[in-house]
């Protein structure tokens, strides 16, 4: 668990880069720090591994102030991924991944086994890639090696600073999928920085929206940020398409009208998103889309039922808020 307590950072006499940030990232969750540049996202991230020290306030990991731990020791227990990756160009892939285990003094067999395991995990065949040099890899492959390197010593915490910012959109989407897959099995406590709201909504269990000047505007789940932006700034940042984005977070099952269906044409599965259902509805001739699960018809989805599901999820969020506070 990571906890920020009234953390402020000022560089020189200027306005704060981060202004009284207080938030808590529960263990095993992904917290995305999102916002325009100048919002102090990276500053906040780097305070966890003490690459940046707060001007006031403190950062706690599992209840312990990071300032009380030697930064070198602290960092060996925290995975760190940056946008430019920063692979060591004079070392091959295996040696790059083995960096932290070597610093920790693991024996050679253990390091080798771990390197292969990690390359498998990030989808790089060890036999092919172990002895490649960074310059021989594509941008996406480099980023995978970067992630493998960060995970090498099995750190409970992972810090990712715009990890998918430097690759093309197709590769980025694939890397995001893989991140979600890996994170579902590993359940690390992740703090991820991005300026891309779509990436934030996709990857985060929680979003911390930071405005210019380092003010925290909202800290909530993606569904809540979309349904109930806390401030005008958040609403503006999330953008006009937020209702459409919400359809991505709800499934057909949420809007299912059980029973028979009058609709023909394209059908959808109950696990599909409401965005898929909406698309099917727009291309079908009738007012409803059949919901089919493995051959049996469960019911249908209509424009009214989708509208109701959106309304209902908004109510759910309100209830959540009350429980939270």
């Amino acid at each position: 668990m990571i906890r920020y307590e009234a953390v402020t950072k000022r560089y020189g006499d200027g306005p704060p880069a981060l202004d009284g940030l207080t938030l808590e990232v529960p263990a095993g969750e992904t917290c995305v720090l999102v916002g325009p540049s100048g919002g102090g996202k990276t500053t906040a991230l780097k305070m966890v591994n003490r690459l940046v020290e707060p001007t006031s306030g403190r950062v706690l990991i599992d209840g312990r102030d990071v300032a009380s731990t030697d930064p070198v020791i602290l960092r060996r227990g925290i995975g760190y991924v940056i946008q430019q990756v920063g692979l060591f160009p004079h070392l091959d892939v295996a040696a790059n991944v083995a960096t932290v285990p070597k610093l920790l003094g693991w024996d050679r067999d253990r390091i080798e086994a771990r390197v292969d395991e990690l390359l498998d995990l990030v989808g790089l065949e060890p036999g092919t890639y172990r002895h490649r040099r960074p310059e021989e890899l594509s941008g996406g492959q480099r980023q995978r090696v970067g992630v493998a390197r960060a995970l090498a010593a099995d750190p409970p915490i992972l810090l990712m600073d715009e990890p998918f910012g430097a690759v093309d959109p197709v590769t980025r989407a694939r890397l995001q999928d893989e991140f979600l897959r890996v994170q579902r099995t590993l359940r690390r406590t992740v703090v991820l920085v991005t300026h891309d709201i779509d990436e934030a909504l996709r990857l985060g269990d929680r979003l911390a929206v930071l405005a210019t000047g380092g003010r925290l505007e909202q800290y909530a789940t993606p569904a809540e940020v979309l349904a109930r932006p806390a401030t005008a700034f958040v609403a503006d940042f999330v953008g006009a398409g937020r209702t459409l984005r919400r359809l991505d977070l709800l499934t057909v099952a949420d809007a299912l009208v059980p029973g028979r269906t009058t609709g023909g044409g394209p059908s959808v599965a109950p696990a599909a998103t409401l965005a898929d259902a909406m698309a099917a509805l727009l291309t079908s001739d009738g007012p409803s889309v059949p919901v089919v699960d493995g051959g049996s018809v469960l019911g249908e989805v209509t424009l009214d039922s989708i509208r109701a599901a959106l309304r209902e999820s908004q109510v759910d969020v309100e209830v959540d808020v009350e429980v939270d506070t």
Binding site: N49, L51, P71, V72, I73, L74, R75, R76, G77, Y80, I82, Q84, V85, G86, L87, F88, P89, T99, V100, L103, G146, R149, A150, L159
Partner: peptide
């Protein structure tokens, strides 16, 4: 490349190790 140095420090190399190894 400063990114390489930052990655090295972020992974827990001391300043002397960053100098010697990277």
């Amino acid at each position: 490349d400063p990114a390489v140095v930052e990655a090295a420090r972020g992974m827990g190399m001391s300043r002397a190790q960053v100098l010697r190894r990277v």
